[in-house]
Computed example of a mutant assay.
Amino acid sequence: MRPKVLPYLLLLPATLFLCVFFLHPFLLVAWEAFSRDGVATLDNFRTMAGNWKFPQALRNTLLLAAIVVPLQLALALSMASIVTRMEKGRSAVLYIFAIPLGISDLAAGLIWLAIFEQSGFLNTLLTGLGLVAKPVMFLGYQSKVMIFVAVVLAEVWRATAIMMVILVAGMGLIPKEYGEAAEVFGAGPWKRFVKITLPLLRPSLQTAIILRVILAFEVFAVVAALGGSNLPVLMGETYNWQFTLQDRNVAAAVAMVILAISIGFTLFFLYALRVPKEARI
């Protein structure tokens, strides 16, 4: 009897932790989103959808995720492949690649703000080379495209290492014999990568993409540092409704929209990158 009960006892602390610090707050936020003055209603979602900034925030958030995640995936795969193939200095290179992981979102935004602002590094460089006569306002309120580009660069620089670490761990679990056998039969590096590495890397790809997509929908501090209110995003609207407009019900409604989108994309990637039963070990 004890061996059957032991796994549940070991899971009990984690289950209690999730119930207290995740499930209970989630239920509170859900009730705030679907109620007003203690009465169940959808008015909060109507107010949210009727706000002129909501469509822009939704579009910007989805567009950021659609651009940032594929770029990060391509870079993370390249970086992970480089690290995996190295025989010497692997730990040092992995550490260098992972340095941005130790920098907070806001700090990363401020670093890139120091690059793009009028008195920043980029303007100093361009002026010193004589390419521009005077400093350019890259992040002005009329330069929304440039703000978007700056946010993309900052996010790619800051969070690619998250995916890379997961993929390095996944590549380390792939038996080398598969690649060696394919090489004996004449498969080149690219063919080995496509036909062997990527299929066997599906569980790690699934985890990395889902995690990064969820974090992409929660982008806030980097946008606040580089664009302020000039580039509305969903998480920024949650903050505005909660603290600026003092309407926690609508803020909870926006949070529920972010959660719904995250769950939708999570289910999609769980299905798209599922491992076939015949391929499971």
Rank of each mutant, 00 (worst) to 15 (best):
2 R>V: 10
2 R>P: 00
2 R>C: 01
3 P>D: 03
4 K>F: 15
12 L>C: 03
13 P>K: 08
15 T>S: 12
21 F>M: 06
22 F>I: 11
22 F>D: 03
22 F>S: 10
22 F>M: 11
23 L>R: 04
25 P>K: 10
34 F>W: 15
38 G>R: 06
40 A>E: 02
40 A>Y: 12
41 T>S: 15
43 D>R: 15
44 N>T: 12
48 M>I: 05
50 G>E: 08
51 N>T: 03
55 P>N: 06
55 P>Q: 07
67 I>D: 06
68 V>Q: 14
70 P>Y: 12
73 L>V: 10
73 L>Y: 07
80 A>N: 01
82 I>P: 00
82 I>T: 10
84 T>A: 08
84 T>R: 12
84 T>Q: 12
86 M>C: 03
88 K>H: 13
90 R>S: 04
90 R>F: 07
92 A>T: 12
96 I>T: 12
97 F>C: 11
99 I>R: 05
100 P>S: 07
103 I>E: 09
103 I>Y: 03
106 L>G: 07
107 A>V: 15
108 A>G: 11
111 I>Y: 12
112 W>V: 02
112 W>P: 02
116 F>M: 08
119 S>P: 00
119 S>K: 15
121 F>Y: 11
122 L>G: 01
126 L>V: 07
127 T>M: 11
128 G>D: 13
128 G>W: 15
129 L>A: 11
130 G>E: 12
130 G>A: 02
131 L>R: 09
132 V>E: 07
134 K>M: 07
142 Q>I: 00
148 F>K: 06
150 A>H: 09
156 V>G: 12
157 W>S: 06
159 A>P: 00
160 T>S: 01
162 I>Q: 09
163 M>Q: 15
166 I>G: 01
167 L>A: 04
169 A>C: 09
174 I>D: 01
180 E>N: 05
181 A>Y: 00
181 A>V: 06
184 V>G: 00
185 F>L: 09
186 G>I: 02
188 G>D: 06
188 G>S: 01
189 P>E: 04
192 R>H: 04
193 F>M: 01
196 I>W: 12
197 T>Q: 11
197 T>C: 03
198 L>R: 09
198 L>V: 15
199 P>I: 07
201 L>I: 10
202 R>H: 08
204 S>N: 06
204 S>T: 04
206 Q>W: 03
206 Q>D: 05
210 I>D: 03
211 L>E: 01
211 L>V: 06
213 V>R: 04
215 L>E: 15
215 L>F: 13
217 F>V: 05
222 V>C: 03
225 A>E: 08
225 A>L: 08
229 S>T: 14
230 N>C: 01
232 P>K: 08
234 L>V: 05
237 E>T: 05
240 N>L: 14
241 W>A: 10
242 Q>W: 14
254 V>F: 10
255 A>V: 05
259 L>S: 12
260 A>V: 09
263 I>M: 14
263 I>A: 14
264 G>P: 00
266 T>R: 09
268 F>D: 01
269 F>K: 07
271 Y>R: 15
274 R>C: 02
275 V>P: 00
275 V>E: 13
277 K>D: 15
278 E>P: 00
280 R>D: 01
281 I>A: 14
